[in-house]
């Protein structure tokens, strides 16, 4: 796309040159070529909450370089990820090196509901796409996409993924009163202390008071199984 304006200006110069041969006195001043138009790509991302009773915190759709990974299974979570997993707060990724755009959902995504986010990027910024959200009726459960390659997607193509729930490993799954920020409890969100295994892993699920965990504020409806989200990523432009 960037070559088109250059060709046009070369053509203009050639025409001017011909004109100069016939009448050099009337040569028009050379117009500067218009700045090259930046090609854009647009992506439409539709997310459906598949759980029974786990609202998702406002979605964060994050565009970044493919050498950035928002988490690694088996490794300890970054503080930015801990903020998502414990409090549903994704703002820590806004300033992360390699992140070039963040689009957020309008609010909580309730069970059974879908939301579509639009992301438009300059073509040379199109590389990897991640998604993050918290299962808010958990201590530190989250779900998302980790650095999906969107650079190779053709216009009009779409990919549908089903996503699992992860445990950030930063807060023990006590399910105790005051420890869960979602509507099941209204308790604490982020706490910098780490009192769990301190590695990201696949979430083992919640137990609930109905299944024998004394002191749990959760009931059977808060249990979940994988997958917890369905996501369709479509390149529209």
């Amino acid at each position: 796309m960037n070559t088109l304006p250059m060709k046009t200006s070369l053509l203009a110069l050639a025409l001017l040159g011909l004109g100069a041969c016939s009448d050099s006195d009337n040569m028009a001043p050379i117009e500067p070529p218009p700045p090259p138009q930046v090609a854009m790509q647009s992506f439409e991302v539709t997310v459906t909450n598949l759980t029974a009773n786990q609202p998702m915190s406002p979605l964060a759709l994050i565009s970044h370089d493919d050498n950035v990974k928002l988490w690694q299974i088996g490794e300890s979570a970054s503080v930015a990820l801990e903020q998502v997993a414990e409090a549903g707060n994704s703002s820590g990724f806004d300033s992360l090196s390699g992140v070039n755009a963040v689009v957020r959902g309008a609010g909580m995504l309730p069970p059974g509901m879908s939301e579509t986010l639009m992301l438009t990027l300059e073509e040379d910024k199109v590389d990897a796409l991640s998604l993050l959200t918290m299962l808010v009726n958990t201590n530190d459960g989250f779900s998302g996409i980790n650095a999906m390659d969107i650079d190779s997607m053709e216009k009009g193509s779409a990919k549908t993924l089903t996503l699992m729930a992860y445990d950030a490993g930063t807060e023990a799954n006590s399910e105790a009163k005051g420890s869960i920020p979602g509507p099941a409890d209204g308790g604490e969100g982020f706490n910098a202390a780490r009192d769990d295994v301190n590695r990201v892993h696949v979430h083992p699920g919640v137990i609930s008071q109905d299944d024998g965990l004394t002191g749990s504020v959760l009931n059977a409806s808060h249990r979940f199984d994988n997958p917890v989200l369905k996501v369709t990523v479509r390149r529209t432009e």
């Binding site: 299974i73 083992p204 137990i207």
Partner: peptide, 29 residues
């Protein structure tokens, strides 16, 4: 189906700990 477990290592029905030994699939990558 996953394990049940309980929170009593010295009694209860299970010798597994429901807070430690439960899982959801997938279990390996």
């Amino acid at each position: 189906p996953g394990v049940l477990g309980d929170t009593d290592p010295n009694g209860g029905t299970s010798d597994l700990d429901s807070r430690i030994h439960r899982w959801l699939n997938p279990v390996a990558r």
